[in-house]
């Protein structure tokens, strides 16, 4: 047996940069993991189709600015996708990588473990973009729901929401001692977050106290910003700043506390 010292030419040609390969690999793994595609895209998409077929939900919501119940569910499901990725997919994978020594093994390579983390974030972000576009398109072409009237405002609100949620996912991965605890923390966080996004009761119908709390939760703030954008306004400052604050604080704490092994 001998070990040739240099790569054959076709291998070299096919070899992209390490970062790009990592992103590709982590994306493939995310798809194989099924949590993101199934619970993050498939499930909310089916929910969207079912809800879109219920004619009662086409009534305008009181204090909803002319939006119907179903109109409000479109952004709720976009947030549902982000929440699944942030509380289910991302922290479980990263905590598993730490537990199984994947990050430790990476420490002995020239690339280092931080880029694995970055590649995971990019992969989840990519899945989120696909989901968001898919949901908007399904609602628009399947059920005649107008696209957000203020597209730029919507894009900004979505980016901030994605940043806030991924930072929360990173924080869970940083604080959880292992894969099991990460899954548990994620699940426990998911339901209250989705409640305040208005999955069960639309925010405009909540009692004032709950509505006020909702506005300062990450998904409630996201919902408020989305609603503005759907109605044609640039989102107001408070929800945007709330999202930005979540993103910055969670990311900061996560980076400070993250352990590679």
């Amino acid at each position: 047996m001998s070990v040739p010292r240099t790569a054959a030419p076709p291998v070299t040609a096919a070899r992209g940069s390490a970062t790009w390969r990592l992103i590709k690999t982590e994306s493939t793994l995310c798809v194989r993991d099924k949590v993101g595609p199934l619970w993050g895209i498939g499930f909310p998409l089916i929910l969207l189709i079912i809800l879109g077929s219920v004619s009662d939900l086409r009534q305008p919501v009181e204090a909803g600015g002319g939006l119907t119940y179903f109109d409000l569910y479109v952004p709720v499901l976009i947030l549902f996708n982000l929440a699944v990725l942030a509380t289910g997919s991302l922290p479980t994978t990263l905590a598993g990588y730490r537990e199984n020594g994947v990050l430790r093994r990476m420490r002995t390579t020239p690339v280092g473990p931080a880029r694995v983390l970055a590649a995971q974030l990019v992969a989840n972000f990519a899945i989120a973009v696909v989901a968001m576009v898919l949901f908007l398109a399904a609602a628009r072409f399947g059920f005649g729901v107008d696209l957000p009237k203020h597209l730029l405002g919507f894009a900004l609100a979505w980016l901030l929401a994605a940043a806030a949620l991924l930072a929360i996912g990173l924080l869970i991965a940083a604080l959880a001692p292992g894969r099991g605890p990460a899954t548990a923390i994620g699940t426990v966080l998911f339901f209250p977050m989705m409640f305040f996004a208005g999955l069960w009761i639309p925010i405009p119908l909540m009692p004032p106290l709950l509505r006020n709390i909702a506005h300062y939760t990450p998904l409630g703030a996201g919902m408020r910003a989305f609603q503005d954008a759907f109605l044609g306004h640039f989102p107001s400052a408070v929800p945007l700043l709330t999202l930005a604050a979540y993103a910055v604080v969670c990311a900061f704490v996560a980076v400070r506390w993250f352990r590679w092994e």
């Binding site: 070899r15 992209g16 940069s17 390579t109």
Partner: peptide, 10 residues
């Protein structure tokens, strides 16, 4: 092999 400047033929 993409991590190294001169990888062996995997």
């Amino acid at each position: 092999s993409s991590f190294y400047p001169e990888p062996a033929d995997w």
